[in-house]
Amino acid sequence: MLPILQLIVDTVAGVVGGVLLLRFWMQVTRVRPPASVAQFTFTLTDWLVRPLRRVLPGVGGYDWASLIGAFLVVLAASSVMFLAGWTVQMVLLTAVLRFLHWIIYGFIGLLILEVIFSWVNPDAPLAPFVRALNYPLLRPIRRVVPPIGGIDFSVLVAFVLLQILLRVIG
């Protein structure tokens, strides 16, 4: 019964936490989302972000309530491990590692979306939005790895670097 409960909790937490991280990253990169993405993001996360903003005001121009909210979601999802007899320290460490995994997998997902858009439909309505979200991640790589034969390998390099980071954390 515990693995099924963990699956359900992880799925719900993954969606909510991922959208909270997207909300934070959109604000960090100053990217204005398309109306449909904005409506989905704010509708799904306002219940947590608005109360947290009263306690955690934006500092340095960043919406820390979204980022802390994402961590609270992963912490709540990891708390199911208490039912399996885990200690507080084990749950906290697991929550921090899972939070870092969520961030890295979020970047990997954005890179995959950019590749799909570039192959299938570069002029899709969401393509500029995804490119803008990836730009801060790809900009330093593009300075070091220029296009070769008109092909941009920066996404591949970023993907490999993120995979390495996942293995180091894991």
Rank of each mutant, 00 (worst) to 15 (best):
V19Q: 07
V19M: 08
L22R: 08
R23D: 09
F24P: 12
W25S: 10
W25C: 05
Q27R: 14
V28P: 01
V28L: 15
T29N: 07
P34L: 11
T41D: 10
L44F: 15
W47C: 02
W47R: 05
V49N: 09
R50F: 12
R54H: 08
P57W: 04
P57V: 02
P57D: 09
G58Y: 04
G58H: 00
G60L: 03
Y62N: 11
D63K: 02
A65P: 07
G69S: 07
G69Q: 06
V74M: 09
L75C: 11
A77Q: 08
S78Y: 00
V80F: 00
V80N: 03
M81G: 14
A84R: 14
G85A: 08
G85W: 05
W86Q: 13
W86N: 08
T87F: 06
Q89Y: 12
M90I: 10
V91S: 03
V96Y: 08
R98V: 11
R98W: 07
R98N: 15
Y105R: 15
G106S: 08
F107N: 04
L111T: 01
L113R: 04
E114K: 03
F117Y: 12
N121Y: 05
P122C: 00
D123L: 08
A124W: 05
A124E: 01
A127I: 07
P128M: 05
F129L: 01
V130F: 02
L137I: 14
L137R: 03
